[in-house]
Design a protein around this nucleic acid. Structure first.
Length: 491
RNA sequence: GCCUUCGUCGUCUAGUGGUUAGGACAUCGGGUUUUCAUCUCGACAACAAGGGUUCAAUUCCCUUCGAAGGUACCA
């Protein structure tokens, strides 16, 4: 058996989204499991829909997600795009410059499997409109199939623009075996004479994938299920060239909540967006791996090593899976709690700095860093997304906090001041400022006014928040001086 | 319209010719002698429908229905 070579072939027409990543992950699992080559190829044949920074965006996401590959474009330290691998270029617009796609399209004409078509877009549109009105399939009517060589030469001499179309055979049944969907069988009569080479000289996806997959010796094609209906066209092209047909593995789509295919325009499903909001790469891996696949056990939490080990390409689901943000949130919470405190601090850092709660310098000061660790330790199990960190800790880092009077008095009612006065007196005399001592100390007041009242009121007084870490650990971390100052202000 | 594919709790899914159809998220309720969260216990909740085949069908077959994708000089 020849070497396993697998590729992902994104088109930079938008920012790579969560669903794209899932397909990429499955490709990756297979490649690494089989000890094959994993290749990134950029399919930028649609020059009209290119999004400038989409490629850089993609490469950064791959890097952040730690999806490594053997061949393809990558970013150097200055975000300059370079390429690695022996089958380059891995960017189709670059490959096009050598004229390969044109050459292969013309080869197909010579062999009688393709023909030039001079029809204008206007005519095609009109033709389709007519067919649609009659409820007929909107296939090309093959007007240009029967042009004589003389007519063709004249049109070319006249400078008429043309495309090259695949000549789909009549009355055949085209079949192939898909690893996840099984045998797919399509009548050739339902397949349009697909354009292979556009009039601007660029290949369409259909020509470019086949040519490049062949040239790059791709052994297995993993791609979204939306490509399933186009595969027969590709089979035809492989056969016309006399090339070996790779294995096909179509992967069900990731869907929006309305069950429609995830689109690059759908809200903010761009993967970068999730990374920036503070979703952990390990949570994204785990969640996405479990959409359309699972290990067949009841295990839900799996590290990348475990997934890599037990992933089974034959157990891929056939139907699409809805992108469920709640479950991703749950996974993210799990992985945040798994982080060591140092790791949690370092991942939260940029959020704290961006929110202007702390500065880069604060993290370099060992005393301050100690305090930061203590504070973050308080909230680690309370948040699901890193972007929640600033809001959850801000009262520990600012000197003047706002305390909502209404909130303060919800539990204490008219006794609020009395409670705080008593708490203040007690704590002023407290020597050992630890969780346990604080707890013991305030217990006596709790007995008078009620636990809930005392603890709630005190907690609000020092944090200003309705929801926050517990009162004793908050007092402990905040320190005696700061705590007393806050309480005194409210008396 | 035509072509292809799919159909187990709301969602992600396990599973089987005979099961109390299992788990997870979400939701709801209880506990963890201070809020929230964590943790923990429990509840709710599904085999799209109709025909076959069979002693037996969620499982095999057919039909219908529903859903998605494709039907571009987009990928």
């Amino acid at each position: 058996m020849s070497k396993i070579r697998v590729r992902i072939a994104p088109s930079p027409t938008g920012y790579v989204h969560i669903g794209n990543i899932r397909t990429i992950l499955f490709n990756y699992f297979f490649a690494r499991q089989m000890k094959g080559d994993f290749i990134v190829r950029i399919e930028d044949t649609d020059q009209t829909r290119l999004v400038d920074d989409a490629l850089v965006h993609l490469l950064k996401v791959l890097k952040d997600l730690k999806i490594d590959y053997d061949e393809g474009p990558y970013l150097d330290e200055n975000d300059k795009i370079l390429e690695k691998g022996d089958f380059g270029s891995y960017i189709q617009s670059e490959r096009k410059k050598s004229g390969i796609y044109k050459k292969f399209a013309e080869e197909l004409i010579e062999k009688g499997y393709a023909y030039r078509c001079f029809c204008t877009p206007e005519r095609l549109e009109e033709m389709r409109k007519n067919l649609q009105e009659k409820n007929l399939p909107t296939k090309y009517d093959r007007k240009c199939l029967h042009l004589t060589q003389k007519e063709i030469d004249e049109k070319i001499a006249n400078g008429e623009k043309f495309v090259i179309r695949l000549k789909v055979p009549d009355n055949e049944q085209i079949e192939f075996e898909d690893w996840t969907y099984g045998k797919i069988s399509t009548p050739s009569n339902s397949i349009d004479d697909q354009v292979l080479l556009k009039s601007d000289g660029f290949p369409t996806y259909h020509l470019a994938v086949v040519v490049d997959d062949h040239l790059m010796q791709i052994s297995h094609i993993f791609r979204g299920e939306d490509w399933l209906p186009s595969t027969p066209k590709h089979i035809l092209i492989y056969k016309a060239f006399g090339w070996e047909i790779p294995q096909h593995v179509h992967i069900p789509n990731v869907l929006q909540p309305n069950k429609k295919k995830l689109s690059k325009r759908f809200e903010d499903v761009s993967t970068r967006n999730y990374l920036e909001k503070g979703y952990l790469p390990e949570a994204i891996w785990n969640y996405l791996s479990f959409v359309g696949w699972n290990p067949g056990t009841e295990q839900e939490i799996m590290s990348r090593e475990e997934i890599l080990k037990s992933f089974d390409i034959h157990k891929i689901q056939k139907s699409g899976g809805i992108f469920n943000i709640e479950k991703l949130d749950w996974y993210n919470g799990i992985y945040i709690r798994k982080l060591s405190i140092d790791e949690f601090v370092s991942r939260s850092k940029r959020f704290l700095i961006n929110a202007k709660i702390l500065t880069e310098k604060d993290f370099e000061d060992s005393e301050k860093l100690k305090y930061i660790k203590k504070v973050l330790g308080l909230v680690q199990k309370r948040i699901k997304i890193l972007s929640e960190v600033p809001e959850s800790v801000n009262s520990f880092f600012s000197e003047n906090i706002q305390v909502d009077k209404k909130l303060l008095t919800t539990k204490g009612k008219e006794k609020t001041k009395e409670i705080l006065q008593k708490v203040f007196e007690n704590l002023t005399n407290l020597e050992i400022w630890t969780h346990d001592e604080l707890s013991k100390n305030l217990e006596s007041i709790a007995e008078i006014f009620g636990r809930s009242q005392v603890f709630f009121t005190t907690r609000v007084a020092i944090t200003g928040k309705q929801f926050s870490p517990g009162v004793f650990e908050s007092l402990e971390v905040l320190g005696k001086e700061r705590s007393l100052k806050r309480i005194k202000k409210l008396i």
